[in-house]
Amino acid sequence: SGWQYDTQCSLAGVGIEMGDWQEVWDENTGCYYYWNTQTNEVTWELPQYLATQVQGLQHYQP
């Protein structure tokens, strides 16, 4: 899939279920990364769990 979410945008106002994931701001890069509080996994790309929800939002315009 060529769909890419801009990680400089916060998910805070989007209104999706974050589940075990937390969004963390990284000052050095000026982007958010994502931290799974259960598994301690850290990812710079939007986790599939969140990406599926964001893509499903009608009002979200990339």
Rank of each mutant, 00 (worst) to 15 (best):
S1G: 14
S1N: 10
G2S: 15
G2N: 15
G2R: 10
G2V: 10
W3T: 15
W3F: 15
W3K: 15
W3C: 10
W3I: 08
Q4S: 12
Q4W: 07
Q4F: 15
Y5C: 02
Y5D: 03
Y5M: 13
Y5K: 10
Y5H: 11
Y5W: 08
D6W: 03
D6Q: 01
D6E: 09
D6S: 05
T7S: 12
T7D: 06
T7Q: 12
T7C: 13
T7M: 05
Q8P: 03
Q8K: 15
C9T: 15
C9W: 05
C9H: 09
C9R: 12
C9A: 14
S10N: 03
S10P: 08
S10W: 00
L11M: 02
L11T: 02
L11H: 03
A12P: 04
A12Q: 10
A12C: 08
G13W: 02
G13T: 12
G13Y: 02
V14S: 09
V14A: 11
V14I: 13
G15T: 10
G15P: 12
G15H: 03
G15S: 10
I16Y: 05
I16T: 03
I16D: 01
E17A: 08
E17M: 04
M18Q: 01
M18F: 06
M18C: 03
M18E: 03
G19Y: 00
G19E: 04
G19W: 00
G19H: 02
D20Y: 08
D20I: 02
D20A: 06
D20P: 07
W21L: 00
W21K: 00
W21M: 03
W21G: 01
Q22D: 05
Q22N: 12
Q22K: 11
Q22G: 07
E23M: 00
E23A: 00
E23P: 01
E23S: 01
E23T: 02
V24Q: 14
V24Y: 09
W25S: 06
W25Q: 10
W25R: 06
W25Y: 08
W25I: 07
W25M: 10
W25K: 12
D26W: 07
D26T: 08
D26K: 05
D26I: 02
E27P: 05
E27R: 10
N28Y: 07
N28A: 12
N28F: 05
N28W: 06
N28V: 03
N28S: 09
T29P: 09
T29I: 05
T29K: 15
G30C: 08
G30A: 10
G30P: 07
C31D: 04
Y32P: 04
Y32E: 02
Y32L: 02
Y33D: 01
Y33H: 09
Y33M: 06
Y33S: 08
Y34T: 00
Y34M: 00
Y34D: 00
Y34Q: 00
Y34C: 00
W35D: 09
W35F: 14
W35P: 00
N36R: 02
N36I: 00
T37D: 09
T37A: 13
T37P: 07
T37E: 06
T37R: 10
T37N: 09
T37Q: 13
T37I: 12
Q38F: 05
Q38G: 11
T39P: 00
T39F: 03
T39I: 05
T39Q: 07
T39S: 13
T39R: 06
N40G: 12
N40W: 05
N40D: 09
N40R: 09
E41Q: 13
E41R: 09
V42W: 04
V42F: 09
V42A: 09
V42Q: 15
V42P: 04
V42G: 11
V42E: 13
T43N: 07
T43K: 09
W44P: 08
W44K: 13
W44L: 07
W44Y: 14
E45P: 03
E45F: 04
E45N: 06
L46I: 07
L46D: 00
L46C: 06
P47Y: 00
P47S: 00
P47I: 00
P47W: 00
P47V: 02
P47K: 06
P47R: 00
Q48K: 14
Q48F: 06
Y49T: 12
Y49I: 14
Y49F: 13
L50W: 03
L50Y: 01
L50H: 01
L50V: 03
L50R: 00
L50I: 08
L50S: 02
L50T: 01
A51I: 01
A51S: 08
A51P: 01
A51E: 06
A51R: 11
T52C: 07
T52L: 11
T52G: 13
T52D: 15
T52F: 05
V54I: 14
V54Q: 01
V54G: 03
Q55E: 06
Q55P: 02
Q55A: 12
Q55H: 03
G56S: 12
G56L: 08
L57W: 05
L57M: 09
L57I: 09
L57P: 11
Q58A: 12
Q58I: 03
Q58Y: 07
Q58F: 08
Q58N: 14
Q58C: 06
H59M: 14
H59I: 13
H59P: 10
H59Q: 14
Y60N: 13
Y60T: 14
Q61S: 11
Q61V: 09
P62A: 14
P62W: 15
P62S: 13
P62T: 12
P62Y: 09
P62G: 12
P62D: 05
